[in-house]
Amino acid sequence: MSTDKDEKFLPAPAAMRSPPQHPVSLIISAIAFYWVASLSVVFLNKTILSGSEYKFSYPLFVTLFQFIVALVLLVVCGHLGKRNRMLSMIPPFEFDQDIARKVAPLSIVYVLMLTLNNLCLQLVEVTFYQVARSLSIFFNIFFTYTMLRQKTSPGAMLACAVVVLGFFVGSYGETNFSWPGLWAGVGSSVFVALYGIYVKKTLQVVDNNQWRLLHYNTAISIVLLTPLVLLSGEVSEIWENVYFLDDMGFWFLMTVTGVAGFLINTAMFLQIKYTTALTNTISGTAKSCVQTLLAMVFYQNPITATNGFGIFLSLLGSGLYSGVRYAEMQQRK
């Protein structure tokens, strides 16, 4: 994200300065890119894990492969960024052991977050995915208080209560309910909340450069996840049971999924850079609504009235929570 030292302002009192105005076309492009990347990640992961002819039900291996693709892209883009202005925001790859040790706790959280997320996608319908992972707001409030000793406003607590109610209502009404999928979603929500906290703590280690952090985080995640994949027995099961390992279409789909995972980081960076916090929040909530509707169309997932009401409540609560937090940010400014 851009900083004051990266931009030139005419001398003026701080109170008179206003944020730079970006062209509407650029803002729309950033939002559209985020939507395409985010929706692609969800639907491609669902497709590769359980929604295609392959049904490659090995979430640990899929996550590891995506990390490897992301690291290759980071290294290549970092090298090209030396000569290409469009990629200059991505620094050359680096790996310092002292920095890596400080980033390692974040990487542990990151690995668990993405692995449980992929497991949740494998086990539940995409229409229920949003509900299963909606408790990240609840855990964010919980960890903010227990770890940072920061209290949450009554308005944000009320919005969180709507999300929790939506979680229980949506779970009760889900037709293709899965306890393992639900717990994977809850676990993913836990680590999503922890990840946000650890990112804030760890960014200072890499001079607040999110791309440097992504370099370390991705490389360490590969080191952490590789032994887990081997110990889990997934590799031997894949070798013995998967008959399409020589199918180029399968590896193309796996690679595209990894590229989409890499692009979501770029898309989030651009949306934050070129839009306001409120626009960013509205975009995320609207994207979740469209994601649920697209899942209904593409996968023909049956939705009961109770399940639909639960999905509505979880999305409504998420939107209210984001709105309350944005209003609080504006008041502090």
Rank of each mutant, 00 (worst) to 15 (best):
C289G: 12
F56P: 00
V169S: 00
M113K: 04
Y110E: 04
L182V: 15
I222R: 02
L320I: 13
M248Y: 06
G78T: 10
W179E: 09
S88N: 09
K8W: 11
P11V: 07
A277N: 13
T281W: 02
L245P: 03
A132V: 08
N118C: 06
A156D: 10
F191W: 07
R325E: 15
V192M: 07
V242H: 03
G317T: 07
F250D: 09
L315R: 10
I141H: 06
L106P: 00
A70W: 02
S171Q: 04
L194M: 15
F9E: 12
I137H: 02
L270M: 11
S38D: 06
I238K: 05
V324H: 12
A156L: 08
V259A: 10
Q271K: 04
E237R: 14
D98F: 09
V103G: 05
E234G: 05
T146W: 03
D96V: 04
T115W: 13
R133F: 06
L64P: 00
T257C: 06
A32F: 14
T257N: 13
L293G: 01
I220C: 01
F143E: 06
I264K: 03
H79C: 05
L316V: 12
V75F: 05
R149N: 14
S153G: 15
P180Q: 12
S18D: 13
G323L: 14
P302E: 10
I31E: 10
E240W: 04
N84I: 15
I68P: 00
L253I: 02
V290P: 11
R332G: 09
L182N: 08
M248V: 06
G181D: 14
R149Y: 10
N208T: 08
N84T: 15
Y58K: 01
P91G: 15
M268N: 12
L225E: 10
P20I: 11
R83I: 13
T218E: 05
Y129E: 11
I197P: 04
V111S: 02
R133Y: 08
P11I: 09
G317K: 06
K55T: 14
A70N: 12
R85G: 07
Q291G: 11
S322F: 10
T218Y: 03
F309G: 03
E7C: 07
L270D: 05
Y326K: 10
K333Q: 13
G323E: 14
D246N: 11
L313I: 08
V223G: 11
G233R: 00
T218P: 01
F312P: 00
Y54R: 06
S50P: 01
G323K: 06
L203C: 09
L26T: 15
T285E: 08
Q97I: 13
W183E: 01
W179R: 07
Y326E: 14
S236C: 03
I303D: 02
T304L: 08
P302S: 12
A277R: 09
L263M: 14
G81W: 01
S25V: 12
S318C: 14
I220D: 00
G233K: 12
V229Y: 09
Q291M: 15
F56I: 09
M296L: 14
I264L: 11
F262P: 01
Q122Y: 11
M113S: 03
T255H: 02
V72D: 05
F93T: 12
S153Y: 04
Y145Q: 09
Y243I: 07
A260K: 07
G284P: 04
L228K: 05
G233A: 03
A14V: 14
V103A: 00
Y216H: 05
N280D: 14
F244Q: 05
